[in-house]
Design a binder for these strands. Sequence first.
RNA 1: GCGCCCGUAGCUCAGAGGACAGAGCGUCGGACUUCUAAUCCGAUUGCCGCAGGUUCGAGUCCUGCCGGGCGCGCCA
Length: 582
Amino acid sequence: MANIGGTGGGGAMAGVLDSIKRDLAARLRRAALEAEAAGELPGAPASVPAGEWPPLPVLDVPRERGHGDLASNLALTMAGILNRSPRRVGQALLDHLELQGSLADRVELAGPGFLNFFLSPRWLYRVLEEVQRLGPKYGASNLGGGRRIQVEFVSANPTGPLVVVNARAAAVEDALANLLQAVGFEVEREYYINDAGHQVELLARSLEARLRELLGQTAEVPEEGYPGEYLRDLASDLLQRRGREAVDALLALEPGQRWEVLGREAVAELVAQQRRTLEDYGVQFDVWFSERELRARGVLEEALGVLERRGYTYRHEGALWFRSTALGDDKDRVLIRSGGEPTYLATDIAYHLDKYRRGFHRVIDIWGPDHHGYIARMKSAVEALGQGRDALEVLIVQLVRLLRGGEAVRMSKRGGEFVTMDELVAEVGKDAARFFFLMRSPDSHLDFDLDLARLQSADNPVYYVQYAHARICSIFGRGGPQVPPADRADLSLLRDESELDLMRHLGYFPQEVAGAALGREPHRITRYLLELAGLFHAFYTRCRVLSEDPGLTAARLVLTQAVQTVLRNGLGLLGVEAPEHM
RNA sequence: GCGCCCGUAGCUCAGAGGACAGAGCGUCGGACUUCUAAUCCGAUUGCCGCAGGUUCGAGUCCUGCCGGGCGCGCCA
């Protein structure tokens, strides 16, 4: 993982704060070398490899305001290696640290040996200038350097409508894809359609049963089939579209043939529905990838060939096995059943082979918690295909429990009763749904409070953030005050504590975006925005933007517009609207 | 039995190896003749599940245990 908070990462991070960190890190490094040259610090012990001394100074924003704007633990890390007291090391660094020409006003040695930097307020004005200059691009960077990443998500079976957990996965991964794009990766969103397996036949037989029901015949949905109401709807649509005669003819076909047709029909319709559901949710996929087509192209055979050539397959009891234990899995896995049918794993391996052939250096899959046991074997498979283990990254999004009136909403898959994604969005709206899913880290179980999400009030976090944006719009709305260029306003008039807090927070945005992208943690942006909205509301209560004082008004307009820009950019990353009126 | 996730304030949850552990909700008390009160301000709240270990420093990393959820097919 890249060093997000520090200064060690690539050279492509954006933002005023990052450039300050890099500048101060370089100064600290020089101070360390000078202190050593002056004999005030011992040289590196022999155990430290050349080029790794002095250690890379890390600068972080401390939790406590009293600890300055940026703090470095360099003295502490060096002290450990040099076997000296951290405060003595810190003092030596301090004595040789040159701040002339930097944006730091002063530096203090504090606590166990931290070096705390107090920045000139000028850095905050630079933040405002930068936000104004970059506008929608503020927060973006080029950490990815244009490398291609594929994000595959939702990929639900085409056997029914999307459900609540799909909505969570969609919100999280769509936001992650946005974040990866923002930090300079070339991202493709892909949806995998499992349209070739046994479950499609079950779907077909279930649909057949519903059709026969409609025609007054006795029929039952098969044991392992799909009993949900939606197949009744699908059946009556089909009957209406094709007409009675065509359906009769269809049902008269021999079983294999009619299931083939019904399966194709049902899958096409259900995938179209899933697609509409996702579009209403604001998620657009670049590629809808069909397993059936993959099979038709013979990729499965090619993948098995690759595994065989690389010595990862063997035959046993009539089946073809994958020697995944050679690559860290806890048992070997069947690829081709003794009956000749490929397993799900085999087709998935083929699918991944195809992904890498399409030139992605990295592939991120998102699975439900019921698939976590699958990670080890799939990573082994990727390795067996000749890729690095890291070429596949699997994120597990945990389950969602819906709460209504403080009680868990009961859902049973067997009875075909579950809350669909469409129902959820209809009940609480797209913005609230997405925002709620993005409030928690993906790997924690989520209680989704339907009552709260539906509430159009202060208690609802999504409105809290959106309201901040709407309030800003209303300042700009009537009469339309002109926002001056940042360098033409006297920003030093922004002195209120709430103004300083707000500017600081705006300055953190680029690193927050980078951190959320690299850490695969979109929920950090949600939290960031809640904080930013809170700071804005506090500012709004304390300070009037439009006042008699033209200079102060100009400065506050610049600040307010910057907040608006960052709220927009942040909400945009989450796929949540930034409304102008509420 | 093995594997994964979780255990932090009354509730829901943040915490990127750092300094005295945070937010929202809740409870109590305040603030609109003003750019949107869907707002703000103040007060209240903790054996970070338990026990060891690594580290100058652990809520964070490692090991074991306890508790909750889920998974462990020639299913997909």
